[in-house]
Amino acid sequence: MAPATTPSTARDRLTEHTVTVGAPAAAVYDLIADVSAWPQVFGPTVHVEVLDEAPPGGGEQHLRIWAIANGQVRTWTSRRTLDPVARTVRFRQVVTAAPVASMGGEWRVEPAGDGTTRVVLLHDYRAVGDDPAAEELIEQAVDRNSRAELTALKHAAEQGPDRAELHFSFHDSLTIAGAAGDVYGFLDRADLWPERLPHVARLDLVEEENGVQRMDMDTRSPDGSLHNTTSIRVCFEERHSIVYKQLKVPAALSSHTGRWTVEPQDDGTVRATSWHTVTLDPEGVRTALGPDATLAEARALVRKALGTNSSTTLRHAKNYAEDHA
């Protein structure tokens, strides 16, 4: 992977990062184009929402993105223009996050003659007030994230057909005869989980702006062992929804994202659902479960472990909300 930085004008700075991927260009482009999968593919990306798209499933997208830059969660909105024929994706931030004054760039996916694919990631940016110190911070974040994204893209694309077996989603739901706000409040106040949930041994929660929470949690397994995870959560109180991404995952996983939703029903109840999307790490599966463990066995164990904890949380949220009804 090779970075290069050259200023184009006195105001704008340009960066270029490249990587060669051992996969067909079409498969690589599809991973870049499918922005809904970015939190699973790209480590810095926490959550992405498509605000509008024209035509549906087509070339122009308005996005809101939450991502980690220089250790902090930043959020911004961007416009993307997708060209599947040329295999390019152009992007431009519409609403930036300080210290960025402007940011844009382009993904280029170029087939190579030997069956590999060359991916070029371009950025142009400018700091607020053209501050040199801020420009240095932006350059560090762009360089770090670009390297991480291209490495992750290469890894995901080179999994080929195996990725379908490694990547899966599932959910658990409960109907609750209580108020949506009470259910959401139980899920939002994760700092109280150690005293409310039997499987949570310890939880440190830091609240940041824009509904962002950082969690460091120890959970108990049925055998009594403790497992530590760290997560970023983005909370949407107005829609009673919480999305999250685990930054530190168990050994058998390469990524884990999730979502809590609380939806009013026509009969006056609410439907609370825990959603999980998981990507297994084949090497981690063998390390955690033994050299003869199969991916099917790993999928079943992960489904049971995550589903059991989520269902326990939903049952306690149900009891809490119904006690307050």
Rank of each mutant, 00 (worst) to 15 (best):
L289P: 00
A288W: 03
D223I: 09
L295D: 05
N319D: 13
L51C: 07
E135W: 03
R74A: 10
D83L: 05
A27C: 05
E60I: 11
R74L: 11
A27E: 14
G178I: 01
I232D: 01
R74Y: 07
H62Y: 11
R118Y: 04
Y320C: 09
H123S: 03
E297F: 01
S254A: 12
S254P: 00
K248E: 12
A97R: 06
M215R: 10
T294N: 01
L51G: 08
D131A: 11
E106R: 14
D188N: 12
E165W: 07
E149R: 12
V100S: 06
R74S: 10
E207P: 08
E208I: 08
P111A: 03
M1K: 10
R108W: 04
G178A: 05
L122C: 08
S254Y: 00
T9F: 00
T308W: 00
G115N: 10
E149N: 15
D52G: 11
A69M: 12
A288V: 02
V73R: 05
T6F: 07
A317G: 09
M217A: 13
L192V: 08
A164M: 07
G224I: 05
L192I: 05
P282W: 03
V200W: 02
A156L: 07
A157M: 07
V94N: 07
R118A: 13
T18V: 12
V278F: 00
A4V: 14
S169D: 13
T20F: 04
R108M: 05
H17G: 07
M103Q: 12
R147I: 12
A37V: 10
R220S: 13
T277V: 09
L31E: 11
L280K: 06
V73N: 07
I232H: 00
A69D: 08
V285Y: 01
G115E: 06
H167W: 10
G178W: 02
T308V: 02
S255F: 02
T269P: 05
L289M: 15
L31H: 15
T117G: 07
L301G: 11
L253A: 04
E136H: 13
E110C: 09
Y320G: 02
A2Y: 10
T269F: 02
K304T: 15
A101G: 13
A112E: 11
D114F: 06
P264F: 05
V270M: 04
V120F: 02
A201E: 12
L174T: 13
R74H: 09
N309P: 01
M103A: 11
P55E: 08
G284L: 04
V200T: 09
W275K: 00
L301P: 00
L301D: 09
W193N: 04
E149Y: 03
A321L: 06
T75P: 03
T230K: 11
R286V: 01
M103E: 10
D130R: 11
Q61H: 12
T313P: 04
F42L: 07
D281A: 15
W107H: 02
A98Y: 08
Y320K: 07
L137A: 15
V120Q: 05
V41T: 15
L82Q: 01
P39M: 01
P7K: 12
G160E: 03
R286S: 14
A156G: 06
G178D: 04
